[in-house]
Design a binder for these strands. Structure first.
Length: 634
RNA sequence: GCCGGCGUGGCUCAGUGGUAGAGCAGUGCACUCGUAAUGCACAGGUCAACGGUUCAAAUCCGUUCGCCGGCUCCA
C-alpha cells in the first residue's frame, strides 16, 4: 500500500506502484498549469511511476521550479528541431539558466546565422504542435555508454563517463533522445511561449583547449505576456547601453586608433571630476593620504613583486636606454617604494595610502567592451599597512565606506564574495589560512552576508569582492579588499614595534569604485543617462526665448558659473520648443527659460526635466531649490 | 585569442555586379518665436584598409583592422 499526503489531504492505493499524475488527480491537484510534481522534495515527471509514497506537491509552470523545467524542456525541443534541420548534429549540454536556456551543439560543419534562428523556431513550433510525449528511461551507466557510443554522440559519452552514479536517465520525444536528469514537461505541446535570441561560440566544457561548439540562446515563459515583458526589458536595456548614451550625451568616444583606450570628452570629464571630488573628500575624512606613482618602472621591480611570474601575460613592456621597463598593471609595487622611504613606527599604523592609479593591462581583443572592459583604466586604489591585529577593524572600515558609496550615495544593491586561494599562487598554506580567516571574521562580525568563491583569489592573497547590480540585473565587480602577506615579505617591509624591534606589516589592497571608467559606464546605465543633479555634466541649461534675451541669459550664466555650477546657454536661433526638446534629450536636470516676462520682473522661469514647468521664481528661490538637491559634496 | 555576425557622410540606416541615396545633425538665408522638432537652400562619402576575380565591385573572393553577441579571462 502506498500513501500520499498533501496539505492535510490524503490518498492511498493498494497497488505497489502508481503514476504521479494519478496521485495528483486523486488529490485534485492536477491542472493545465501543472507540469511536474515534488515527492518528498524530489522533482519528478508527471508520468513517473513510483513505488513509494510521501508528501506530494504539484509544480506549476508558473513557479520558479516549473519555469526552470519548462526552459529545460524548451532546450530539448530546440535540440530536436536542430537535429531535424541539421542531420548529424551532436549535442553537448543544454541547461536552463537565469532568464532562459541554451544548448551547445556541434553542427557537424554547418554554420548558423541569426536568420536561421527563425527557421529553427518554426521547426520547434511544428514539433510542439505534434504534442509528442516526453518519456523517461533509466539505464545502467554501461548501457548508456554503449547507447551513446553507438550513436556517435561523443559529448554525451563524455558526460555519462563523468556521472558519479550507477544509473542515468534518458528522455525521448519522437526520434529525439537526450541524456538528462529531468524532469520535463509531459509533452511538447506544453511549450508555447519561447524565442531564440542569439548565437555564440562556446568551448566544450568551458575549456579553451577544447573544440568550440555553437551555442544557441533562447528563453521561454509560462505566459505570452511574460515573454513579451521580457523581450521589452531587453529592448529597454539596449536604450540604456552606455556606449549608445556615451555618444548621444557626448561623454566619451572609442576609436580604432586606440582599441580599449577610451577618449573622454568635456562632459564625461565633468562627471569623472565630480566623482573624484566626492571620492577625495570621503577618503580625507577617513584618514587616507593620497600619493601618485610613475606609469613606467624598471622590470626588476616587477620581477621582485612577482608580477613577472604571475601577471606577465597582461603586461606591456618597453625599453629606456636599452634597459627593460614595464608599464604598470597595478599600483602596489610603486606604493611600497613610497612606504619604504621612511622608517615607520607602530604608532603610525595603520597607514592608509590612496592612489588614483592609471594602470594598463593587456586584455584579449575579444573581451573589450565599451568602458566596462578596457586596456587602460584608473583604479581608486589604496594600500593599508597595518599590524595583523588591526586587519579586522580596517576591513570593517572599508566595508562601511563601501556601503556608504554604493548604497547611500548611488542607490545600488550589491553582494559580497570571499575569494580563496587560486592555483599559481605565492605563499604558504598557513599564511593563506590565516589571511582567509581574518577576512571571514570581519565579514561575520559585521554581519555581512557573503558567499565563497573558491580558488578565485589574487595570486598574492584572498579577497573580498563587491558586486553591484545594474539596471538590467547584471552584476559588475567594483570594490575589492585583498589581504597580502606576500609583498611585505618580498620587499622586506618593516615597522618598529613597541619592543623596539623590526616587524613585518600586513598589507591590504582595496578599491571602492574599482575602475573609474567602468564605474562611469555602470552609472550611465544605472541612471539611463539622467544623472542626479549633483553629478550631471550640465546641471542647468539657460534658454533665452529670443535674441533680445541672450544678454540676460549671459549675466545669469556668469553668476551661476561663479558659484561653481555647471551651466550652458542655448543661443541658437531656434524656437523655444526646440531648445526645450534638445535640453530634455540631453537629460539636463534644470532648464531656465528667459523671455520678456522674466526680463521685466528680473526673475526666471524654471523647468525640471521630469516635473516639467515649475513656473517663475527669483534667482534666490531657485538657489534654495538647488540647495535641497541631494549633494554628497556639500 | 576562439566561434558567429557586422563595417556605406558626424549619427541612424537604404542600396547585393553597371559611374553613391534618405532622414537627423552641420552651414547659409528667412522667420523673432513662451515649455519636447519653423521653413527653404547648400555642403558633406576614394562605401574600414589592402589584394584578387570581372569589360565593370559598396555589392563576389581572400587577408588585415575595428566593432557587436558570446566563450575563456577580468577592475
Amino acid at each position: 500500500m502506498l500513501q500520499f499526503m498533501s496539505n492535510g489531504k490524503n490518498f492511498s492505493t493498494e497497488n505497489n506502484s502508481i503514476e504521479i499524475l494519478e496521485v495528483l488527480k486523486a488529490l485534485s491537484l492536477d491542472g493545465k498549469k501543472i507540469i511536474a510534481a515534488k515527492l518528498n522534495g524530489q522533482l519528478l515527471d508527471l508520468s513517473r511511476v513510483v513505488d513509494f509514497g510521501g508528501e506530494i506537491e504539484p509544480v506549476s509552470v508558473e513557479s520558479d521550479e516549473g519555469l526552470e523545467i519548462l526552459r529545460h524542456s524548451t532546450a530539448h525541443l530546440m535540440a530536436q528541431a536542430v537535429e531535424n534541420l541539421y542531420p548529424g548534429s551532436k549535442f553537448g549540454v543544454g541547461p536552463a539558466i537565469k532568464d532562459g536556456f541554451y544548448y551547445d551543439i556541434d553542427l557537424n560543419g554547418a554554420a548558423l546565422t541569426e536568420q536561421d534562428l527563425s527557421k529553427i523556431e518554426a521547426e520547434m513550433r511544428k514539433l510542439a504542435g505534434k504534442a509528442e510525449k516526453i518519456t523517461r528511461e533509466d539505464l545502467s551507466k554501461a548501457a548508456a555508454l554503449e547507447f551513446f557510443k553507438a550513436r556517435g554522440d561523443e559529448y554525451k559519452v563524455e558526460l555519462v563517463e563523468a556521472v558519479d552514479a550507477d544509473t542515468v536517465s534518458i528522455y525521448r520525444q519522437g526520434d529525439y533522445v537526450d541524456l538528462c536528469r529531468g524532469p520535463h514537461v509531459p509533452d511538447t505541446s506544453k511549450i508555447h511561449n519561447f524565442k531564440l535570441l542569439s548565437l555564440a561560440g562556446a568551448y566544450w566544457r568551458g575549456d579553451e583547449k577544447n573544440k568550440m561548439l555553437t551555442r544557441i540562446y533562447g528563453t521561454a515563459f509560462a505566459t505570452p505576456d511574460e515573454l513579451k515583458d521580457y523581450l521589452k526589458r531587453l529592448e529597454e536595456a539596449k536604450l540604456r547601453d552606455h556606449r549608445k548614451l556615451g555618444r548621444e550625451l557626448d561623454l566619451f568616444s572609442l576609436h580604432e586608433e586606440g582599441p580599449g583606450f577610451p577618449f573622454f570628452h568635456p562632459k564625461g570629464m565633468a562627471i569623472m571630476n565630480t566623482l573624484i571630488d566626492f571620492w577625495r573628500r570621503e577618503h580625507i575624512k577617513r584618514g587616507y593620504q593620497e600619493i601618485r606613482t610613475p606609469q613606467i618602472l624598471d622590470r626588476e621591480l616587477w620581477l621582485k613583486s612577482g608580477h613577472w611570474d604571475h601577471y606577465r601575460e597582461n603586461m606591456y613592456f618597453t625599453e629606456i636606454d636599452e634597459k627593460p621597463f614595464a608599464v604598470k598593471p597595478m599600483n602596489c609595487p610603486g606604493g611600497i617604494l613610497v612606504y619604504k622611504t621612511q622608517l615607520h613606527s607602530y604608532r603610525d599604523l595603520p597607514i592608509r595610502m590612496t592612489e588614483l592609479g592609471v594602470v594598463h593591462r593587456h586584455e584579449r581583443s575579444g573581451v573589450l567592451h565599451g568602458l566596462m572592459r578596457v586596456r587602460c583604466f584608473t583604479q581608486d586604489d589604496a594600500h593599508i599597512y597595518c599590524e595583523p591585529s588591526q586587519i579586522r577593524d580596517e576591513v570593517m572600515k572599508i566595508m562601511e565606506l563601501d556601503k556608504y558609496v554604493y548604497n547611500d550615495v548611488f542607490g545600488f544593491k550589491y553582494s559580497v564574495e570571499l575569494s580563496t586561494r587560486p592555483e599559481n599562487s605565492m605563499g604558504s598554506e598557513e599564511q593563506w589560512n590565516a589571511a582567509e580567516n581574518a577576512l571571514k571574521e570581519a565579514l561575520e562580525i559585521s554581519g555581512t552576508p557573503y558567499h565563497i568563491n573558491a580558488g578565485d583569489g589574487a595570486f598574492y592573497g584572498p579577497k573580498i569582492d563587491f558586486h553591484l547590480e545594474d539596471c538590467i540585473g547584471r552584476t559588475w565587480q567594483c570594490g575589492t579588499i585583498q589581504l597580502d602577506f606576500q609583498l611585505p615579505e618580498r620587499f622586506d617591509m618593516s615597522y618598529i614595534g613597541e619592543d623596539g624591534k623590526e616587524h613585518r606589516p600586513v598589507m591590504l589592497h582595496r578599491t571602492i569604485l574599482g575602475s573609474l571608467e567602468r564605474f562611469l559606464g555602470i552609472l550611465i546605465e544605472h541612471y539611463a543617462g539622467a544623472f542626479p543633479y549633483w553629478i550631471a555634466p550640465v546641471q542647468i541649461k539657460i534658454i533665452p526665448v529670443a535674441n533680445e534675451h541672450v544678454n540676460y541669459a549671459k549675466e545669469l550664466s556668469d553668476e551661476f558659473l561663479k558659484s561653481g555650477l555647471r551651466v550652458e546657454i542655448d543661443t541658437r536661433d531656434e524656437k523655444l520648443g526646440r531648445k526645450i526638446r534638445d535640453a530634455q534629450l540631453q537629460k539636463i536636470p534644470y532648464m531656465i527659460v528667459l523671455g520678456d516676462k522674466e526680463l521685466a520682473n528680473k526673475n526666471i522661469a524654471v523647468r525640471e526635466r521630469s516635473k516639467g514647468d515649475l513656473g517663475s521664481m527669483s534667482v534666490d528661490e531657485f538657489k534654495n531649490l538647488l540647495a535641497q538637491e541631494f549633494n554628497p559634496i556639500h
